[in-house]
Amino acid sequence: MTTEQSPLWEVFVRSRRGLSHTHAGSLHAPDAELALRNARDLYTRRGEGVSIWVVPSKAITASSPDEKDAFFEPAADKPYRHPTFYEIPEGVKHL
């Protein structure tokens, strides 16, 4: 199996209804149909899933660790986005 013959796919599994698909792992398959079936056999053989996505690995664009600071640190100093930032008098309900 060469990588061109059988590229890599990322597998996302919804473990039960009401939850998001989560990354479960990866596998090789020549096409999407087999990728889906391989994913079913490999990642849900103990009943771990109710729905599967497969995505060609090369279709994923990821942020780079070098951009980590620029991407993620600016979000760290905006506490007013979180509910715990606000003081509410005791006894006020449904807030």
């Binding site: 199996m1 059988s6 596998l27 090789h28 087999l34 079936r37 391989n38 056999d41 490999l42 053989r45």
Partner: peptide
Amino acid sequence: PVLEEEVALAN
């Protein structure tokens, strides 16, 4: 013939 198929045939 492929490792993925080991798992499929066993299933």
